[in-house]
Amino acid sequence: MTGRLADIPLPDGSVEVRGALHLERTAHGLRPWRLPAWTAAQFPDEALLRVAQMPSGVRLAFRTAATVLELAIQAPPEPPRPGAVELMLDGLRTDRAALPAAGGPAVLRFTVGAGAAVAGGAEREVELWLPQWTSVELVALRADAPVLAPRPSGRRRWLHHGSSISQAPEADSAAETWPWIAADRAGADLLNLSLAGNAHLDPFTARTVRDQPADLISLKIGINVLTAASFRRRAFGPAVHGFLDTVREGHPDTPLLLVSPVLSPPFERTPGPGRYEQTADGPRFAALGDPADIPAGALTLETVRAELARIAAARSAGDPHLHYLDGLALLGPRDADGLADLLHPNPAGHRLIGERFAELAFGPGGAFAPARPGAA
Rank of each mutant, 00 (worst) to 15 (best):
residue 242 G to W: 01
residue 169 P to V: 10
residue 267 F to I: 06
residue 146 P to S: 15
residue 71 L to K: 05
residue 218 S to I: 00
residue 236 F to H: 01
residue 37 A to Q: 14
residue 127 E to P: 01
residue 217 I to W: 09
residue 243 F to C: 04
residue 171 A to I: 01
residue 339 L to C: 04
residue 196 A to D: 07
residue 47 A to C: 09
residue 322 L to Y: 02
residue 55 P to W: 09
residue 44 P to S: 04
residue 252 P to I: 00
residue 203 P to V: 07
residue 272 G to K: 00
residue 191 L to D: 15
residue 323 H to T: 11
residue 120 G to Q: 06
residue 182 A to M: 10
residue 194 S to L: 04
residue 130 L to N: 07
residue 62 F to L: 03
residue 244 L to A: 03
residue 313 A to K: 10
residue 98 A to T: 07
residue 283 P to H: 15
residue 200 H to P: 07
residue 220 K to L: 04
residue 341 D to A: 04
residue 95 D to Y: 08
residue 254 T to F: 03
residue 229 A to T: 02
residue 215 D to A: 05
residue 154 G to Y: 13
residue 103 G to V: 01
residue 238 P to E: 12
residue 218 S to W: 00
residue 238 P to L: 03
residue 249 E to P: 02
residue 43 F to M: 12
residue 254 T to I: 00
residue 288 L to D: 12
residue 230 S to M: 01
residue 255 P to F: 10
residue 16 E to L: 06
residue 244 L to N: 05
residue 50 R to V: 14
residue 81 R to W: 00
residue 214 A to P: 07
residue 336 A to G: 06
residue 21 L to E: 05
residue 307 E to H: 08
residue 349 G to C: 05
residue 221 I to D: 00
residue 177 T to F: 12
residue 296 A to Q: 12
residue 320 P to A: 07
residue 47 A to H: 06
residue 199 A to V: 12
residue 208 T to C: 08
residue 191 L to M: 14
residue 281 D to R: 15
residue 193 L to M: 14
residue 194 S to A: 12
residue 235 A to V: 13
residue 49 L to H: 03
residue 169 P to T: 13
residue 27 A to F: 03
residue 245 D to F: 02
residue 147 V to C: 14
residue 251 H to L: 04
residue 191 L to K: 06
residue 94 T to C: 09
residue 329 A to W: 13
residue 251 H to N: 02
residue 210 R to I: 07
residue 104 G to K: 03
residue 70 E to F: 13
residue 314 A to Y: 10
residue 349 G to L: 04
residue 94 T to I: 08
residue 351 R to N: 10
residue 119 A to F: 14
residue 349 G to D: 05
residue 69 L to S: 00
residue 124 R to Y: 08
residue 97 A to S: 05
residue 229 A to G: 11
residue 67 T to G: 13
residue 220 K to R: 10
residue 239 A to S: 11
residue 78 E to N: 15
residue 64 T to G: 01
residue 108 L to P: 01
residue 266 P to C: 05
residue 254 T to A: 12
residue 238 P to A: 11
residue 299 L to F: 09
residue 271 P to I: 14
residue 365 G to C: 00
residue 45 D to C: 09
residue 134 T to Q: 15
residue 161 H to P: 06
residue 23 L to S: 11
residue 117 A to V: 09
residue 86 E to M: 15
residue 62 F to R: 04
residue 271 P to N: 02
residue 315 R to G: 09
residue 376 A to N: 03
residue 122 A to W: 02
residue 200 H to V: 07
residue 266 P to F: 12
residue 204 F to G: 11
residue 362 F to M: 03
residue 104 G to W: 07
residue 347 P to E: 04
residue 134 T to I: 14
residue 76 P to K: 00
residue 262 V to F: 02
residue 48 L to H: 05
residue 30 L to D: 10
residue 311 I to N: 12
residue 322 L to C: 06
residue 349 G to K: 06
residue 352 L to F: 03
residue 94 T to F: 06
residue 237 G to I: 13
residue 335 D to E: 09
residue 304 V to Y: 13
residue 51 V to R: 02
residue 311 I to D: 12
residue 230 S to G: 08
residue 22 H to Q: 08
residue 276 Y to S: 11
residue 237 G to K: 06
residue 169 P to S: 09
residue 309 A to I: 05
residue 39 T to S: 09
residue 19 G to Y: 00
residue 24 E to Y: 11
residue 319 D to A: 03
residue 302 E to R: 11
residue 83 G to V: 01
residue 193 L to G: 14
residue 258 L to A: 00
residue 229 A to L: 07
residue 52 A to G: 01
residue 197 G to E: 05
